[in-house]
């Protein structure tokens, strides 16, 4: 029982830390924008390291969705509606899968990077120079992720739609024209906006969770490995949980 109480206490303290880190880094967004060199470096890191894999991922998501979607629709003789799989991409697959990739690539990198800095006293060195790590390290990363994730989502959506249209053409025998006609007929701007709002929030979550685990790192190189793993697990979890609640709220509004 004491162990349970202890772990509840730890969870609560962690919640406090995460909330405090989030607020702090949001408060220092101005600093990140002013130190645009730091920001550009982070933007470059995020965009550059994710571009290829996000594209490939999106392409295959599109292929798979149309593969199954076409099969299902054939049962109802409604293959011509296979363009509707595009809606699933925009609603969920685009933002969530992109967030997964970025959590794996970027969130873990943040945890490792900041974790290493923590282990080698670099964070303390920053503090002793009167620089807030939240401002110098977290804010640019937060802004970079929150800004770039929507763009990556659009890019992933595009790749997935291309893959889907191609698959629809060769496998389901629906011309790309028809695919996109159905897609755009049923796509609402609201849905696009919803998915991008989600992407911004997912980006923030990934950056904050990654950085939080970095700061929490103790115990040398082994500790860095541990917090890297944890950051990925926790970002994925947080993204999915947030996805549910954000969707619920945005759908109701």
């Amino acid at each position: 029982m004491p162990a349970f109480v202890e772990s509840v206490k730890r969870t609560c303290a962690a919640a406090y830390d995460v909330a405090a880190l989030t607020l702090d880094s949001i408060r220092h967004i101005g600093y990140a924008l002013k130190r645009h060199k730091l920001l550009f470096k982070q933007l470059y890191e995020v965009g550059n390291s994710s571009l290829v894999i996000v594209g490939v991922f999106g392409l295959f998501v599109g292929l798979i969705l149309v593969l199954y979607g076409g099969d299902q629709l054939r049962r109802f003789n409604q293959e011509k509606l296979v363009g509707l799989t595009g809606l699933a991409i925009v609603w969920e697959f685009g933002p969530v899968f992109t967030a997964f990739i970025v959590a794996g690539r970027i969130g873990s990198a943040y945890a490792a990077e900041i974790g290493t800095m923590q282990v080698y006293d670099e964070i303390d060195a920053l503090k002793s120079m009167g620089i807030k790590p939240e401002a110098y390290l977290v804010s640019p990363r937060l802004v970079a992720c929150a800004l770039l994730l929507p763009l990556l989502v659009i890019y992933a959506d595009f790749a997935a739609l291309m893959g889907g249209a191609g698959m629809a053409w060769f496998y389901v025998r629906v011309a790309p024209r028809e695919f996109f006609r159905i897609f755009f007929q049923y796509l609402e701007f609201r849905e696009m906006a919803r998915s991008l709002v989600k992407a911004v929030i997912f980006g923030g979550i990934i950056a904050v969770v990654g950085c939080y685990h970095g700061f929490k790192t103790t115990g040398g190189a082994a500790g860095v490995g541990k917090s890297t793993t944890q950051s990925v697990v926790h970002s994925l979890l947080a993204v999915l949980v947030a996805d549910y609640f954000i969707s619920k709220i945005l759908l109701a509004l």
């Binding site: 290493t116 060195a125 807030k132």
Partner: peptide
């Protein structure tokens, strides 16, 4: 305050156990 602390930090030098250099 953070402002005073920065002024304090400007007049203080710290050498950490492992050097504390930024490896990046």
């Amino acid at each position: 305050s953070h402002k005073d602390y920065r002024a304090f930090c400007r007049s203080v030098g710290v050498l950490f156990q492992s050097g504390g250099l930024f490896n990046s």
